[in-house]
Simulated scan of single mutants.
Amino acid sequence: MRALTFVPGRKGTLDVEEVPDPRPGQGELLVQGLAVGVCGTDRELDRAEYGWPPPGRERMVIGHESLGRVLEAPEGSAFSPGNLIVGVVRRPDPEPCGACARGEFDMCRNGRYTERGIKEIDGYASERWTVEAGYAVRLDPSLESVGMLVEPTSVVAKAWEQIERIGSRAWFEPRRLLITGAGPIGLLAALLGRQRGLEVHVLDRSPAPGLKSSLVEELGGTYHSSSTLEAFHDAKPDVIIECTGAGQLVIDAMTTTSPAGILCLCGLSPGGRTHRVDAGVINRDIVLENDVVFGTVNGNLRHFRAAAAALAEADPGWLERLITRRVPLSRALEVFEPADDDVKAVIDLTA
């Protein structure tokens, strides 16, 4: 079968090649790969910024935003041939930390977890793949063309779970939400915000309105094209979900929430840049207003299930518009060069 593979730690090694067909082990599903989404993590792996191959091997299959259809299922599992599924990305280490042992492997303490397509386990960018039944999530059939969005939505589902847990420390009825960044994570965060009945604002640093602005407006949100948070200094949001990783926006967001506000950091900032910061102002604002700033990454099985449920409730046409490029597996390398108008690029594993 064909698969998209690379050598972790070496640039220019990404290629479509023939690899042996997978054989399901005990308790595993055999799956026909339908599609895989490509995100910034995949492009960083291609640039050899990180990545760890399976033990004893040089090359590995990339891809963590999966979508497939069950071909074979073990007897007694919750799955049947024909089911539409996605595979969870992360696995706890063989000697799990306290969090991993309790199923919270997205919050691993010792760093010895593994991840499909990223760290020591083959990913999902192949014509067939296997997955343990306990790490698979069945999807509504309506998600057949957009199910690869479950993985990025799981990151957002976890963010919302954590926001709501933090808010429950006291009276919490948020009304105004600000998302900084209008990429897939930002737009999906806005979707889940609207599903919670919030007034949603999305700030994008793009110079002019276009597809992203129309996607925000179709949700019933308000789109802002700006590189600063000046427009929110008077009417401050109760919750900010920061998805750009832009250093100055991160800093400004810390003092732009309402009292007892919550800032969730989802974007990753590049190192090596410095910003002028009045640490005293930030400290006073957070302390005197009982604010919370926290970071989040990855998702566990619970978050994948929540993501699948959220997408099943969404407008299928809106989800379809998030996918701006679909290329066949034979041309997979094309999507590792992002286009200016990209939102989400997808590789079709059946073509």
Rank of each mutant, 00 (worst) to 15 (best):
M1T: 12
P8Q: 08
V16W: 04
E18I: 07
P20I: 03
P22R: 05
P24G: 09
G25P: 03
E28L: 04
L30N: 04
L30F: 05
Q32T: 14
G37R: 05
C39T: 10
C39L: 09
G40C: 07
D42M: 09
L45E: 13
P54F: 04
E58P: 08
L67S: 03
R69L: 06
R69H: 08
R69S: 10
L71H: 06
P74K: 08
E75F: 05
F79I: 10
F79N: 05
G82N: 10
V89H: 01
V89E: 01
C97W: 04
R102S: 15
N110F: 09
R112Q: 14
R116T: 02
D122F: 04
E127Y: 01
W129G: 02
A136T: 10
R138D: 05
S142R: 14
S142Y: 02
S145F: 01
G147W: 00
V150F: 00
E151S: 00
S154V: 00
V155F: 01
V156N: 00
A159S: 13
Q162N: 10
I163P: 02
I166H: 13
A170H: 13
R175M: 08
L177H: 05
L177I: 06
L178R: 03
L178A: 07
I179G: 03
G181A: 06
G183A: 12
L188M: 00
A189K: 01
L191V: 03
V200I: 12
R205M: 14
L215H: 07
E218W: 07
Y223S: 11
S226R: 14
A231I: 10
A235C: 08
P237Y: 06
P237G: 07
I240Q: 01
T244Q: 11
Q248R: 15
L249W: 04
V250D: 02
T257Q: 11
T257V: 15
S258N: 15
C264P: 00
S269A: 15
P270G: 07
A279H: 13
I282T: 11
V292C: 12
V293S: 08
V293N: 05
R305P: 08
A310W: 00
A312W: 01
A312H: 03
A312M: 01
E313F: 02
A314M: 07
D315Q: 08
R326M: 01
V335T: 07
I347R: 04
A351L: 14
A351F: 06
